[in-house]
Simulated assay, not measured.
Amino acid sequence: MMEEDAPRRAAGLTPPVLDGWDVEELKNYIERLRAEIGRAEAAIAKKQAHRGAADAFFRTRPE
C-alpha cells in the first residue's frame, strides 16, 4: 500500500464535554491522553529513525 493510500485520521479531534465529570474521571482522562501522546511520540521517533537510516544509506559519498 502506498503512503498516500493509507487511511488518514481526521486532523481535528472533538474534545468531550467535561462539565459532568468528577475529579477521578478527569484524572483518568488525563492519563489516557498522556498515554496517547506517548504513543504518538513513539511513532514520530520511529519514522524519524527510518528516515535517518534511509538518508544515511542513500547519501552520496564525496569523491
Results as ranks from 00 to 15, higher is better:
42 A>T: 04
23 V>M: 10
52 G>C: 08
52 G>N: 15
38 G>R: 06
47 K>N: 15
17 V>H: 00
61 R>V: 09
53 A>Y: 09
57 F>Q: 14
29 Y>C: 08
15 P>T: 01
30 I>P: 00
28 N>P: 00
42 A>F: 04
21 W>M: 14
44 I>F: 10
43 A>D: 11
37 I>A: 04
15 P>D: 02
36 E>I: 02
62 P>N: 05
15 P>W: 04
16 P>G: 05
56 A>S: 14
63 E>Y: 08
38 G>N: 08
49 A>P: 01
32 R>Q: 14
35 A>W: 05
37 I>R: 09
19 D>E: 15
17 V>Y: 02
48 Q>V: 13
54 A>V: 12
17 V>D: 06
34 R>K: 12
53 A>I: 07
55 D>P: 00
18 L>F: 07
59 R>K: 15
47 K>Q: 13
35 A>E: 12
22 D>R: 01
19 D>A: 13
37 I>M: 05
48 Q>C: 13
45 A>L: 09
34 R>C: 03
59 R>S: 06
43 A>C: 08
56 A>V: 06
43 A>E: 13
39 R>M: 04
18 L>C: 05
44 I>Y: 09
38 G>Q: 07
21 W>F: 12
32 R>P: 01
40 A>Y: 04
56 A>I: 05
31 E>Y: 08
58 F>P: 01
31 E>G: 05
31 E>Q: 14
18 L>N: 01
16 P>T: 03
59 R>P: 00
41 E>L: 06
32 R>G: 03
21 W>L: 15
45 A>N: 08
50 H>F: 08
24 E>C: 04
59 R>I: 00
26 L>G: 01
59 R>V: 01
17 V>P: 00
27 K>F: 07
36 E>F: 02
59 R>Q: 11
18 L>D: 04
25 E>N: 09
61 R>H: 07
44 I>R: 10
55 D>N: 11
46 K>T: 08
63 E>D: 15
15 P>Y: 02
43 A>F: 05
55 D>C: 07
14 T>I: 12
50 H>C: 10
37 I>Q: 07
18 L>I: 04
37 I>P: 00
63 E>F: 06
36 E>Q: 13
47 K>P: 00
